[in-house]
């Protein structure tokens, strides 16, 4: 494999609250190469967004990245001064958020919000910036982009707003885009269109893409690789086909089982029993053990990432074997 665009090593992001320390991201490592799409999957609260914010340097107090390296093109972003990091944001790494109704500033025109994103990183005239903004809108499929530039966000539908946000992310041709559930709030047709376009875009422009979602079915057709997160940790990592066809981790298995599929029509959906544990002062041991059918005494210890199958990783003492899944 070629040199990865982004390599995250042993990232730890903790929140120091009055009640105690919340380990929102705990020992997370992964990498994503140019033109590749990495899916980051997990339940609500598993630390997916915090992983994204940590990379962007946008974790707000009382949270803080406490350990790890975030290497972008070989340079550790954690060592950058605040203003150098500002120059990375929106320029080399862009981020798109979940709710398109909330991400655009309601009182600023779309052109203002696009031009400022360009001028924050390059000494470009307003006219030139405007032209680039218009091209970006056209590229994400917004009809009559010239006129739409002077509109306000509330004059766009949800899907169109998300396209505007994507266009803004594309403006400075970033090396990496972190998309934090950008289609969750949209209806299925629009979601499909946007997924298709983003995939095409990553492939054509060689942009690395981290796609955060709780929805496995979104990832299935989109990503190359999957990281499954649980309680702030990556519990399974592998190619999409490997992980979805033959999950190693009991949690991944449970996730796949809870997705409706044609093969199991009529059968009741199998939900993972129990709830996500609170990350506040999480006890040692596998965080999944209260919900896991395979748990035993060994699981009271922290499982380490192991690689029972070449090219795959799992954090479990008793990973599923091929026969157990079938």
């Amino acid at each position: 494999m070629t040199e990865s665009t982004l390599r995250v090593e042993n990232l730890r992001t903790h929140f120091f609250t009055r009640q105690g320390v919340v380990k929102a991201v705990e020992d997370v490592s992964f990498s994503v190469g140019a033109g590749r799409i990495l899916g980051l999957v997990g339940e609500s609260g598993s630390g997916k967004s915090m992983t994204g914010y940590s990379i962007m340097g946008l974790v707000d107090p009382p949270g803080r990245v406490v350990a790890g390296r975030i290497l972008l093109g070989g340079k550790d972003l954690r060592t950058l001064a605040p203003d150098e990091m500002r120059k990375v944001r929106g320029n080399r790494i862009a981020m798109i958020f979940q709710d398109p109704m909330m991400t655009l500033n309601p009182v600023l025109r779309v052109d203002t919000q696009m031009i400022e994103a360009i001028q924050a990183h390059a000494d470009v005239s307003r006219a030139a910036a405007l032209e680039r903004a218009r091209d970006a809108l056209a590229r994400v499929g917004i009809p009559s982009p010239q006129e739409r530039l002077s509109a306000y966000p509330h004059q766009f539908s949800g899907g169109m707003r998300q396209r505007v946000a994507i266009a803004i992310a594309l403006l400075n041709k970033p090396d990496l885009i972190i998309a934090d559930e950008p289609t969750t709030a949209l209806d299925v047709t629009i979601q499909g269109q946007i997924l298709f376009e983003m995939q095409k875009l990553a492939r054509e422009s060689g942009t690395a893409l981290i796609w955060i979602t709780h929805d496995l079915s979104v990832i299935a057709g989109l990503a190359d690789e999957i990281c499954v997160m649980y309680a702030g940790r990556i519990v399974e990592h592998g190619s999409v086909d490997q992980v979805l066809d033959a999950p190693l981790h009991p949690y991944t298995h449970g996730l796949i089982d809870s997705v409706p599929s044609r093969g199991r029509r009529g059968e009741p959906l199998r939900q993972i029993p129990g709830m996500t544990p609170s990350l506040l002062d999480l006890a040692p041991g596998c965080a999944f053990r209260d919900r896991c059918a395979r748990a035993d005494g060994a699981c009271a210890e922290d499982p380490a990432l192991s690689s029972p199958v070449a090219g795959r990783q799992v954090r479990c003492f008793h990973p599923l074997t091929q026969s157990a899944v079938a």
């Binding site: 990375v88 944001r89 981020m95 655009l104 500033n105 009182v107 400022e116 994103a117 924050a120």
Partner: peptide
């Protein structure tokens, strides 16, 4: 979110506060 997004665009904090928040 719009403030977070503005920061994610790499705007300076002066602009985030002076334009996005203030307006």
């Amino acid at each position: 979110d719009y403030v977070k997004f503005a920061r994610a665009k790499g705007l300076s904090s002066t602009r985030v506060v002076g334009v996005h928040v203030l307006k």
